[in-house]
Simulated scan of single mutants.
Amino acid sequence: MKRCIKSEYNIGIINLQVNNGAMSLLSPRLLKVLLLLVLAFIILQYSYTTIFEARRIDPLFIVNSSLLARNQFFFMKNRSNYAINKNSVSWTSDGAQMTNALLVDATASQNLASQQTYSSNELCPLIPPNLLGPIKPEKDAPATLEELEHELEAIGALPPSDGQWRPSYCKARDRVAIIIPYRDRAHHLNIFLKNIHPFLQRQQIDYGIFVIEQAGYGMFNRAMLMNVGFVEALKFREFDCFIFHDVDLLPEDDRNLYTCPDQPRHMSVAVDSMKYRLPYSDLFGGVSAMTKSQFELVNGFSNMYWGWGGEDDDMAARLKSVGLHISRYPNNIARYTMLSHRKEKANPKRFEILYSGRKRIKEDGLNSLQYRRLSLIRNRSLTWVLVELAVPS
């Protein structure tokens, strides 16, 4: 009996040794398989998260590589109607060549419009069909506004009047006012206008451009000028979306739609001067979009920020206080080029004012705005409003 037990015990040891040997032979192969499975899972999870976040940010974010491929095909098909400058070519991240949208001449613009099969009463498509995707902004522009408007007219991108344009072949889904706080930046303004008009027209947006200039030489109040722009734009017509735009930022991708989603949107997520990185999560400066109702809900911007800095963080805090959150496109879409410029003098009290910002929402903003309009100029490329701001005692 004891011998049998011992024999069984010895056989068990032999089996165990054999199994361990098999495991040792298979372990490198199993390890490779397991690593490949883990990598595949990570890639799938990342892809799903990216798509999910994009759709969560904005339901209009459905544009993809097939859209760019379709536009490349259209360009090749109609290349005889384009004035191609070999020195003005930009590239997509995957190496596909894209012509600069600003080089489309008047004939090409007419052909783009004739491609549409929509009536003037039918809503424009949810995805604008003529988007190019990544583009290279033009950093040169004529010295005068008159020369610039002549150049815009030559490429078929000059609005009929007052800096306002709408598609004639379909009904735009959005009525957008572009508000630009401004002082002493004439060359930057011309560069901005040269880039932004073709950009917005490819997006089939009903838009108007309002340049709000601060008179005098006192401390610059960007936030107060944006409040003025909101009030003055609504004197012209009913806009439902407002985009507050620094004059020195040029968009690099026309898939960055200049519209207002359900939540306020920070547009200038990735700027070249910041190495295309978002400095902090609550940033709301540079270019931002809000609906009329959202802007009124937070009583506009604070009027207390004289000098550089603070007003955008104040607005971010206002949005949070009423239950809104900041939405963004991915940084490969919301990309901008910043024109070089001299920095404004910083507001030494900005942090102190920011600290008490939420307490002042109801009495500091649109309802406390005081200014005097000194001049109004209506050019075909923009509406220009010169104002004198009331300086607090």
Rank of each mutant, 00 (worst) to 15 (best):
E147W: 03
T144R: 05
S88P: 00
A172C: 02
L148G: 08
R175K: 13
D312K: 04
T383D: 11
D254H: 07
D174V: 09
N81S: 15
R318E: 02
A101R: 00
T117S: 13
P137L: 02
F242V: 04
M274K: 11
L152Y: 05
V298I: 15
E153K: 13
E153G: 11
F75L: 15
I127K: 12
Y336F: 15
S273D: 14
V104N: 10
Q110D: 14
Q263N: 15
A143Y: 07
G229M: 11
T49W: 12
M338W: 03
S27A: 15
D58K: 04
V231Q: 12
Y169M: 05
A69V: 09
K171I: 00
R335Y: 03
L374P: 02
N379Q: 12
E149M: 15
W165T: 05
A172N: 00
K320C: 04
H325A: 02
S109I: 09
L103I: 02
V271T: 10
I191E: 06
S66I: 09
D312P: 07
S24A: 12
Q45F: 14
L278F: 09
P142T: 11
P348A: 07
A390W: 07
R265V: 04
R358F: 00
H188C: 08
D105H: 09
R56Q: 13
V231L: 10
E8Y: 10
T144K: 03
K86Q: 06
L278Q: 13
G208R: 10
L36D: 12
G310M: 07
P59G: 10
E363M: 00
S302I: 00
N85R: 13
I180Y: 05
P261W: 14
W308E: 13
E296Y: 01
E147P: 03
R3N: 13
I243D: 10
I333F: 02
L386Y: 02
L250N: 10
L257F: 15
W165I: 04
R79C: 08
S293V: 08
R360P: 00
S24Q: 11
R166L: 06
D184H: 11
T144P: 09
I326N: 04
H197P: 08
A108S: 12
F75R: 08
K86V: 15
C124A: 07
H150M: 12
A390D: 10
D184A: 14
W306Y: 14
S88Q: 14
L225R: 09
F230L: 08
I180E: 08
R70P: 00
C260W: 09
L257K: 07
K139I: 14
A270I: 05
E213W: 00
Y9T: 09
V104T: 08
K359R: 05
Y118I: 00
L26R: 01
Y82K: 03
C241H: 10
L123C: 02
N100T: 12
L324S: 01
N190D: 06
L225Y: 09
L189I: 01
I353M: 06
N303W: 03
A270L: 07
I333W: 01
